[in-house]
Amino acid sequence: MTIQLSIHYSFLAAAIFYMVSLVGAAGKKKTWAWYLFFAGLLCNAISLGLRYWITFPLLPLYQGAFFLPFVVGVIGIRFGIFHSNALVGILPGFFIVTVLAWSAYLFPNDFYLPFLQFKTLFAHGFFLLGVVGKSMFLLAGVKAVQVLFVQDREAGQAKSMGQIVSWGFVFWTLSVFAGAAWSWLGWGSPVIWDDPLMATTMATWFVYSLLLHLHLTLFAGQRPRAWCILAGAVWVFCFNCLTELGPFRLPGWLS
């Protein structure tokens, strides 16, 4: 089996494990859901490791969508996204990881040969810090759902929601700075004006700058903030996740 097929099938296995774990969680089989979810993370990690193996020290171009479900899953565990007594509290976490994995699988971007300009730590920093930042914004949205809709609100949910947003902002900002430094080193300008993703990246930075200033306004309450953070996560999904996907492609084994 070639390495590309290993990458493909390990990611497919991850997507299937994630989906079955979602079904398990919905069916209140929490222990099984957990085992399957960890199996999904393991397969996803193998797929990502191999992706990096065939490109490093260059950057795996347009591969961010495959990294996202793994990073969301791992950081989600760290921030207790999957811990809730209520079904409505536990499902969004499994749901978002499953949606991200299947959207990456069914809407892959084109494969391009990497440019030699990608051979710098700043390019990897821009890419990886961006994935972490994006994951944290999505996770903050999941936390917001828990704050808004779980009746027996667990203590500290709202506080950790704010923490996730703050850390997401830190990673997003560092990613933007790494991108600017890379852009200057490679092309002599910190902004490349022909890339539409530059506009959505900046817009997302302003969205979260706005959210971080909410505590100074009348929208400082827990519920208004949670609604705004949920809206922010929807924004990130629409303008930073969907824009990185390619057209729908029927997998080879189905056609």
């Binding site: 004006w193 022909d194 890339d195 539409p196 530059m198 506009a199 959505t200 900046m202 817009a203 302003f206 303008f239």
Partner: peptide, 8 residues
């Protein structure tokens, strides 16, 4: 910036 995205 959203408008800018479409234009770019």
């Amino acid at each position: 910036l959203l408008n800018g995205y479409v234009m770019l």
